[in-house]
Design a protein around this nucleic acid. Sequence first.
RNA 1: CGGGGUGUGGCUCAGUUUGGCUAGAGCACUCGGUUCGGGACCGAGAGGCCGUCGGUUCAAAUCCGACCACCCCGACCA
Length: 576
Amino acid sequence: MKYSKRLSRYLLPTVKEDPKEAEIPSHRLMIRAGMIRKLASGIYEFLPLGWRVVKKVENIIREEMDGIGGQEMIMSAVQPKSLWDETGSGRWYLYGPELIRFTDRNDREFCLGPTHEEVITHIVASNVKSYKELPLLLYQFQMKYRDEIRPRFGIMRAREFYMKDAYSFDRTVEDCRKSYEDNFKAYERIFRRCGLDFVSVEADTGNIGGQSSHEFMVIADTGEEEIAVCRCGYGANTEMAEFRTDDRADGDRQEAVRELEEVHTPGVTTVEEVAGFLKETPKKFIKTLLFRTDDGRHIAAFIRGDHELSEHALKKAASANAIEFIDDDTIKKKLKSSPGFSGPVGLSSSGAAIELYMDSAAAGIVNGISGADRKDYHLRNINVRRDMKADFREGNFRKARQGDLCPKCGGALVFKRGIEVGHTFLLGTKYSESMKAVFVNDQGSEENMIMGCYGIGVTRVVAAAIEQSHDGNGIIWPAPISPFDVLLVQIARDADEFCAELFGKLSEEYEVLWDDRALTPGVKFKDAQLIGIPVQIVIGKKYKETGEVEIQYRKTGEKEFVRPEHISEKLKKRSG
RNA sequence: CGGGGUGUGGCUCAGUUUGGCUAGAGCACUCGGUUCGGGACCGAGAGGCCGUCGGUUCAAAUCCGACCACCCCGACCA
């Protein structure tokens, strides 16, 4: 017997009107379909129907994780600060206010886990000693806690969310690559099975750390991430995307090179303001961005005015782990420049200790405009190769954008929006080294374990599935993650017995929700569309006349009439 | 945290500009009746110290102040 329910005995508070707090389809529909309710900003309850979908996704993930040798366990959501101190990486502080902290009655500090690298590494470090016990792949499903700056879009970006996190431990980097590959492939199977249209892209490793990283993106206009993909299979977060340029299109190359000239630009600092003031296009500007690296060096990046800096590319070129803007005081005193009026000419000739990174597009500007490194003045007619007085590094330091070409095949990059539902990291020894997760190899000496970690936002997958599959009437569930297989819609009021019998029979094979509520047909049909179960079996007045019942398919709206004993056969043919 | 906005029965909202006597509508809910294949109809009910605290006033949902909550735009992430 499958899990089946009568709707009259099921908590399914559907809502006719759009809730005003919800903007995007998934959020709206999850509330309207009685799946979730909000308890506080970014904190949601899952009602029975919503939780069933979460469990469907969870089970698919579980099967695939087990399939690659994963072992499920559960760690505490509560973590002691002392454990975080062990990494020596200062992650307790790096995580900042996003970490939900509290103290117990004895003033010991704890947090609610935003992720579990520290805990799992601790467990493995203290329980695994020999190369004979490796590799290991451990995973769990659990609520994670992040005090997001701005919770948004219902469960899409919540402060409490359900996540699958897996951690691999290997003897060698090659073995770890294999583990990474296994997980990567499992992710592809998982998202395919969930019926999602997705791509995997190269990604930044963020504050989890590590060497290699991929994000799994569900394609949706409402996605928060911008990704660049190519027909050849290349794909990357735009933050990361490499590209070849086709800047010939930009050329005012014929323009005659003119003499440097200082112009008075009182109080105008941003590219837009100065462009307006001087009546020039942003393409003529060299935007100057000043950073301090985590190891204390000063660097300047020069980007064309209409371009955006790729922090990733700059960090990579400068071999920095992190960069932050330089404060005004330092700009004045150490760099002998003026905040808001910095530019390549002054910075390269002042003798200040600063590394210079010039984006290729900016380098190619003829008679460009930039700050004059003194308050309220800009320089015009800058020609980088002529006017820069110190060595600089040239390269791509901007983000890819429309019109750029694929770095692999030279084809046109296509930009899409995506919802990040999964992220894989090849961590290496970042945690094992600091937390002494070591094993004894077959030579009898100690080595650090090589780690990987792999997350899937289970609740976000649910929201993403709805973003991708809905219409004006409601949700359209992909069959594998639908909360029920079949919705039995009883319209005829004198059909209780018939429906009860059919319900019992169908339940042997399908998870059935029987709408046995004493409501008017309109309400029941609308609710049926809203909650989006793929197959509806409607018992109306016709069943008595012809002995046939009606099957309606949510996705296409098609209807067909069959004898009750042929339902199963029909559905099999349909799905097969 | 910066910018914008909203708080009035369970839900969606009117009323606030120009203070005034019992605070409204639709939906949902309860009871009775009529309906019964695409969010029905009639009748009768129940449900609100108008986000909170303080102030102005003869009188405050309405004016003033503080606070709180929530939503949207930016930096963070599964």
